[in-house]
Amino acid sequence: MLEIKNLHAVVEGEDIEILKGVNLKVNAGEIHAIMGPNGSGKSTLSKVVSGHPEYEVTEGEILFNGEDITELDADERAHLGLFLAFQYPVEVPGITNRTLLREAYNTIARANDREELDPLEFEDYIESKLDVIDMKDEFLNRSINTGFSGGEKKKNEIFQMAVLNPVLSFLDETDSGLDIDALKVVSDGVNKIANDENAIVMITHYQRLLNYIKPDFVHVMMDGKIIKSGDISLAEELEANGYDKMEKELALNGEAQ
């Protein structure tokens, strides 16, 4: 589904390279976790894949279902079924969640020659998704993320994911700032959305999230590269020993990846 080959990226207009040759392959039905210390480039990876204009790809390619999407705008990537749950969801005052989601849903439907939903049909559809994240419908009437608590913002991201039903989702530190109850609700939501047809890439600092959402693969990212991949035991190893130790070991072994 997603294949990232030797991806290099810089901040637009600057020389400093943030991604230094990332390789990653994600298939349908898989859940991946990317772990790494601050500044390792994991959030940047999710933004570059979803087409943030602040970054420029200098080398390599991003293939999505075989198509190179490196040059596509963010909305065009979204039309293909790419979703990013933001680490810091953005406030948009005066526009309700409902309006955003109806616009988004129908725009994506149009782009894929699927039928759009009229407001009444959409109402039924969106109501049916409220359960995924245990949300009250008054939530739909609130302006996008405006005045939301940190936990509500993160829940809202997963709710949007449920409504838009993406093919591939990047969850950028969705667990950060959540208390244990909220973490459970959010994780339950993600587990309900995950199926054989879609794929999820979680980006996180902590192993904690992985107790609730079980990844098939765990990757460790450091200094703009994925330096090690494995299964859940890799996360456990990290939790026990920390990133420093892993980095030193790898340096000793001269292992690049």
């Binding site: 705008d73 933001f86 005066g94 526009i95």
Partner: peptide, 20 residues
């Protein structure tokens, strides 16, 4: 970017922000 990531075009995104 947030709105575009949800599939909305740049022009519509700006218009939504302003209208809000």
């Amino acid at each position: 970017f947030y709105l575009m990531q949800r599939g909305i075009s740049e022009q519509d995104a700006i218009s939504m922000i302003i209208n809000g």
